[in-house]
């Protein structure tokens, strides 16, 4: 027994020494990333007046630098393509933990998909894995069941297969970040666009309770930190879904800070201003950004 325990102990010690190698890869992984916005958030390097949260609608449909110059404030876009409201809540929580709190937040909604319980919009774990060298991020992964508790102590439990590739990641043409964090569509989509007039009724039964809780949490965080929260409905190349709008109004119990694009503006029925049904081309984004700055200026 004694021999067995000594061997086990020695094996464990040697393993812990070898484990140090893993930290080389863990630390290098973050450097390979093209989009370093979340890492900058965790490092606490932001000092902005307005933060934009959302999914691809938030990332594509507003130009943060333009908004900043139009209203004379520092604006930064922290929207992530395909991100659900759960992830947006995490971004806000993390931002407030490490950075100076902003004055305003623009929360871009995904219309009827905002609270829907499907997999279209996700918790972007892929944004967390590369920066898991930060204990805060690793703890978040543990909390959400994506890492084991052992990763707190063992590097090899904190590393992914992909982390061993040392090549830097290159963005595709629709993921080019501007200085203020927006990702406008500068190219054209080859698909033909057709204006969608059909509105499917909104069904509350399709909602995910966890997403409603995330929305409430975002409201609470803003309230506790005296941040003004604006909800943004950005243009779609389809008729506006009033079913979700009504439901949302009930949830936030106020209309005051809800920004809905000008549904009567003929520009939003012109396909030249759109990349696809849900996302504006940069020309459309410029117009919508001005619409938002006008609203914020007047409020």
């Amino acid at each position: 027994m004694k021999q067995f325990l000594i061997s086990l102990f020695l094996f464990f010690i040697i393993f812990l020494i070898i484990d140090k190698v893993s930290w080389y890869f863990i630390n290098r992984t973050a450097d390979k990333e093209y989009d370093k916005r979340l890492e900058t958030v965790v490092q606490g390097n932001f000092e902005k007046d307005i933060i934009i949260l959302g999914s691809s609608r938030g990332a594509n449909n507003i130009l943060a630098c333009q908004l900043g110059s139009e209203i004379g404030l520092e604006v930064y876009n922290l929207s992530y393509k395909g991100a659900s409201i759960l992830f947006q809540e995490f971004i806000l929580k993390t931002y407030l933990k490490f950075n100076k709190k902003p004055k305003k937040i623009l929360l871009f909604l995904d219309h009827k998909f905002t609270l829907k319980s499907d997999e279209t919009l996700k918790y972007r774990y892929d944004r967390l894995f590369p920066i898991s060298k930060y204990n805060y991020i690793n703890d978040q992964l543990i909390e959400r069941g994506k890492r084991s508790y052992g990763s707190k102590f063992i590097g090899f439990l904190r590393i992914n297969r992909k982390d061993f590739f040392l090549k830097k990641k290159e963005p595709n043409k629709n993921q080019i970040l501007t200085n203020c964090g927006s990702m406008p569509h500068t190219s054209r989509n080859n698909k033909t666009l057709k204006y969608n007039e059909v509105i499917t009724p909104y069904n509350i039964a399709d909602e995910q309770q966890e997403k409603i809780r995330a929305l409430k949490k975002i409201q609470m965080l803003c309230k506790d930190n005296s941040i003004e929260l604006f909800y943004v409905f950005s243009p779609s190349f389809s008729s506006f879904n009033f079913g979700f709008y009504k439901r949302f109004k009930n949830l936030v119990s106020s209309e005051k800070n809800i920004i809905v694009y000008d549904t009567l503006n003929p520009i939003y029925k012109n396909k030249d201003y759109f990349y696809d049904v849900s996302h504006l081309h940069i020309q459309g984004a410029k117009i919508f950004t001005t619409e938002i700055s006008t609203f914020m200026y007047s409020n």
Partner: peptide, 18 residues
């Protein structure tokens, strides 16, 4: 031991996601 450690490292790396 090198061989066993290699197995452990593989197991740890592949178990880290899910």
């Amino acid at each position: 031991w090198f061989f066993y450690m290699l197995i452990i490292v593989l197991v740890f790396i592949f178990s880290s996601e899910t």
